[in-house]
Lab assay of single mutants.
Amino acid sequence: MATGGRRGAAAAPLLVAVAALLLGAAGHLYPGEVCPGMDIRNNLTRLHELENCSVIEGHLQILLMFKTRPEDFRDLSFPKLIMITDYLLLFRVYGLESLKDLFPNLTVIRGSRLFFNYALVIFEMVHLKELGLYNLMNITRGSVRIEKNNELCYLATIDWSRILDSVEDNYIVLNKDDNEECGDICPGTAKGKTNCPATVINGQFVERCWTHSHCQKVCPTICKSHGCTAEGLCCHSECLGNCSQPDDPTKCVACRNFYLDGRCVETCPPPYYHFQDWRCVNFSFCQDLHHKCKNSRRQGCHQYVIHNNKCIPECPSGYTMNSSNLLCTPCLGPCPKVCHLLEGEKTIDSVTSAQELRGCTVINGSLIINIRGGNNLAAELEANLGLIEEISGYLKIRRSYALVSLSFFRKLRLIRGETLEIGNYSFYALDNQNLRQLWDWSKHNLTITQGKLFFHYNPKLCLSEIHKMEEVSGTKGRQERNDIALKTNGDQASCENELLKFSYIRTSFDKI
């Protein structure tokens, strides 16, 4: 039985969820670079991206490699990797027998973001014989899940209580170790020597080791999670996991709180800001991140802002960003909400898709409305799209047979046209069989910064309504002859009103 693990408890099935942008060198404390989270699957090609990484700022997932063999891993080693800020997950990587050479110096898994409450997941690794993470000293947050690894031993010899604050939620089941077939031998045991430290858990006094050649490092209890030197002297209180010299914040392997210019500090002093819960960055760093993602459509890219001495992905609820200094300031009234469309555009074809934009005031991208039916549609669209004030790209209304009016965009005031449909149009209306009105132009103002209007096959939309939009939106004169079809717009509506004058002759039985 794995020490510190839980057996036999019912657990939810383990679901495996399925960018080499360097964020800056980590400095003297770390020998390499800070790398983003990685999802490495199918083959070993991307694994080489770990070569210079000291910190993975995010998670590391290595999974679904069915053609790899043990010899493929023999020359692979990433000794610079010290810390993973989120979680480490391995799933069905064939041929991998140990992690001792792959990650010989991995010391800390912070667990800032977890995989279903777990910071370390080893699942269905069919050839893994031992973990071998002999320098792993601290899992700051989260638990361990090690399950269905039929060859995995050296679990009962690990004292997880020396690595985690609590072992109650560890789930370590259905491994070879369960069948008591392992016969784990710690260093020196074969020669009758006791080389590794022994600890007591559940009444068992057991030597602690990761492999037959690597003991588990056990520091004096007084050192807590700070770690200790090879001689057993406690590291500085700002260290986490390990250090090369005692009581020196510049000799830590990793930091308990924050890293700044080669030393570990309790908090980031001005003019620095907390970033990702582990390091200090200056304003320029946060500003660069903001600008890199301002026009990016890459998933996970955030326009970072500053709030409460932190550089964070977005302002919290009730705050909006001051564009001059990136500071989050309290909103006066309802907060603006910028919604970034991942692929640059979004099609609204149902109430469900409209709900995804609920509360958005600025759309960074283009909207395509293609709704053919739905219950209580006008009210639903207004509830979900009615706060949109600005669209950076274009607005396209296409084959939306259920629409009679666009009044559900009740606050839309600006279409920038930074991206144009077919390279020309910022407003595009095609084949809307029941569209009769755009907006009530006596109450609604709309500016279209650039781009043209396109109207074709809107049989109940009168040309007068379209011409009014040209005047109000500032697009009059931009359109070419064929942009607004004269014969297919309003051709099934009563669009022309003329005053009919009647004269009559009164007659009676005795007068003409």
Rank of each mutant, 00 (worst) to 15 (best):
L29N: 14
P31R: 02
P31T: 13
G32F: 09
G32N: 14
G32T: 12
V34F: 15
V34M: 11
D39G: 02
N43H: 06
L44Y: 08
L47W: 03
L50N: 01
G58I: 00
H59N: 09
Q61T: 11
I62R: 00
L63T: 09
L63Y: 08
M65H: 07
M65Y: 03
K67E: 14
R69E: 11
P70C: 04
P70S: 04
D72H: 03
D72V: 07
R74Y: 13
R74F: 06
D75V: 15
F78S: 02
P79W: 14
K80W: 09
L81K: 00
I84E: 00
I84T: 00
T85H: 04
Y87V: 00
Y87S: 02
F91V: 05
V93H: 12
L96N: 01
F103Q: 01
N105R: 08
T107I: 15
T107A: 08
F116L: 13
Y118F: 13
Y118W: 07
A119E: 00
A119Y: 00
A119V: 03
V121G: 04
E124P: 00
M125D: 05
V126A: 15
H127D: 08
E130Y: 13
Y134N: 05
N135P: 04
M137A: 07
N138G: 11
S143M: 13
R145G: 03
E147T: 15
N150Q: 12
E151V: 13
C153S: 15
A156T: 07
T157W: 02
D159Q: 13
D159C: 07
S161E: 13
I163E: 01
E168V: 12
V173G: 03
L174K: 14
K176G: 13
D178C: 11
D178L: 13
D178K: 07
D178Y: 10
C186V: 03
N195F: 10
P197V: 05
T199L: 11
T199K: 09
V200K: 03
I201A: 10
G203M: 09
F205G: 14
F205Q: 14
C209S: 02
W210G: 04
T211A: 15
T211D: 07
Q216V: 11
I222Y: 06
S225P: 11
H226Q: 05
T229H: 03
A230L: 03
L233K: 08
C239P: 00
G241E: 03
P246S: 15
T250W: 09
T250S: 10
K251W: 02
C252A: 00
V253M: 15
C255W: 01
R256V: 11
R256K: 09
V265L: 09
E266V: 13
Y272G: 02
Y272H: 04
Y273F: 13
F275M: 05
Q276M: 05
R279W: 05
C280Y: 00
N282Q: 12
S284E: 15
Q287R: 14
D288G: 10
C293Q: 01
K294P: 08
N295C: 05
N295K: 05
Q299C: 06
G300I: 13
G300S: 08
C301D: 03
N308V: 12
I312P: 07
P313T: 10
Y319L: 05
T320L: 06
T320S: 04
S324Q: 11
S324E: 08
C328D: 03
C328G: 02
P334L: 07
P334W: 05
